[in-house]
Amino acid sequence: MDQPLIRLEGVHKCFGDLEVLRGIDLEVRRSEVVVVIGPSGSGKSTMLRCINGLEPIQGGRIFIEGVDITSSKTDINQIRQKVGMVFQQFNLFPHKTALENLTLSPMKVQGKSRSEAEQIGQDLLAKVGLSEKADEYPGTLSGGQQQRVAIARALAMQPDMMLFDEVTSALDPELVADVLNVMKDLAREGMTMVVVTHEMGFAREVGSRLIFMDEGVIVEEGDPRLMIENPSEERTQKFLGMVL
């Protein structure tokens, strides 16, 4: 069996005195879609940010494709090109058009030519259904459109895996479906994904594994359909009772 794309070993993360992650072990294999749920403050977003090296950790180790990203010898910028990340607040570059948002990093980091980067960018904008918005600035797009551009921007680096941090939480309800559809398509194409979300429908439909986190630990994990129907832990039952 090939090595997991993502492996967390006893990860601890503190913000000052507050211990947000208290020993997280996790493995994500190629083409798995891992959906992470849990109450706010459970550490699920922090875990995602640690996987991308956006947060330093105080204990444990994190491996991406077998490379220890917590080692000082590792070039984190190299790793991040393999790990796409999409944020709750989109974080599009407001001074760049949609297409320029997609082409900036491929050109400046991967050294692609403008024409090659634009070709990839146009294809990805088409994939998320926003070809006609290529020359628009983010400020003129709706939240759902911005988030789809943000997904396309992460994909433009041709990553091996994608991290989604509550990407629909800041959207109006009627815009959520468009974003989720893009993500479902990605999942079906075999993209390896870790998705922090409250969208249980998404978990049920395309999730290969569901993880419930609370107070900095993984409380329960399993097949999403089985776990949603019949959670074994009381905390999971309580949480699912609230979100379903």
Binding site: L54, R80, Q81, F87, Q89, N91, F93, S105, V109, A150
Partner: peptide, 14 residues
């Protein structure tokens, strides 16, 4: 916004 720096870093920029 700090998210701009984070987005850039997450795309592999130093």
């Amino acid at each position: 916004p700090h998210g701009q720096m984070e987005a850039a870093r997450s795309l592999g920029m130093n």
